[in-house]
Nucleic acid binder design. Structure first.
Lengths: 143, 143
DNA sequence: TATTGTTATACTCTATAACTATA
DNA sequence: TATAGTTATAGAGTATAACAATA
């Protein structure tokens, strides 16, 4: 009979979350690459879905990435028609980023893909375990 | 009152696991960099802790990375005295990788670091939620 | 002069391909 | 000829720093 907590690094949450996170990301990446997207694009669109970004720098701060990366991601999303850049009339230095209808549709497809992957990923869990996991993850991601 | 499952991509397990995994990895990386290690080094040592690798290629397959990456990681770990390369006497092409005492000590410190991070990371969870999370993660990582 | 967005550059990580030694 | 390890090279991804436009 083994200890509940187990022993060794692999029994820690950081290690397990790191491992599972890498698996989750790579599967998600493969699933959305047909849409011309990478996980970061989905992340940016998600951040934009709630509220349009007042500026790209504000968005960069929200996402915790370098402003130059937002430029690159926004360029690619704009090419897909998923986001729209419009100059702020009050401060013409600023680009207001807005999610377009095309962007919302893409994001919806990302969500569908993610729900399908959830089924695969969580297949070995009982309904009770799934609910408990969802609850814990919800707390940890602040929802 | 909101739906239990929530809506949108951020409510999926893949998205949440991906996000949390990235946070977990970067915190762990920062915490062990003083030891001269990166997360992959810890992963390699962990793989070696149970059983010594018959060959570097076998280990690469086990970890799901390119053989050349194992060379690099093993070089760095060997420089730290954490692993030992010994030629297989039956097949002198093969390098048998073994975790040294130094390596075991390093791995133990990684585990201590990870447990401390677990406390931080899971601080907002009730004991019941923690136990449920540990159970679910255990199933998902196959332990 | 300070700030926003952009562009240029560099660095990290990792994989693929070429090479050496052994089988 | 095939395989293990190594080395060389290349690509993706992202950050830092220089630059242009606007304030």
């Amino acid at each position: 009979m083994s200890d509940v907590k187990g022993n060794g690094l692999p029994s820690t949450a950081v290690f397990q979350l790191g491992t599972l996170g890498a698996v989750a990301e790579s599967r998600f990446a493969r699933a959305v690459e047909g849409l011309g997207l990478k996980p970061k694009h989905a992340g940016l669109m998600t951040a934009l879905a709630a509220v349009a970004a007042e500026s790209q720098q504000e968005l960069a701060a929200r996402l915790g990435v370098a402003p130059s990366l937002v430029v690159t991601l926004a360029d690619q999303l704009e090419a897909l028609g998923a986001v729209q850049r419009t100059r702020d009339v009050n401060d013409r230095r600023r680009q207001v980023l807005t999610l377009t209808e095309v962007g919302r549709a893409l994001l919806a497809r990302c969500e569908a893909v993610a729900r399908a992957l959830d089924e695969e990923l969580l297949a070995d869990l009982t309904p009770r375990q799934r609910a408990a996991l969802a609850e814990a993850l919800g707390v940890l991601t602040g929802r």
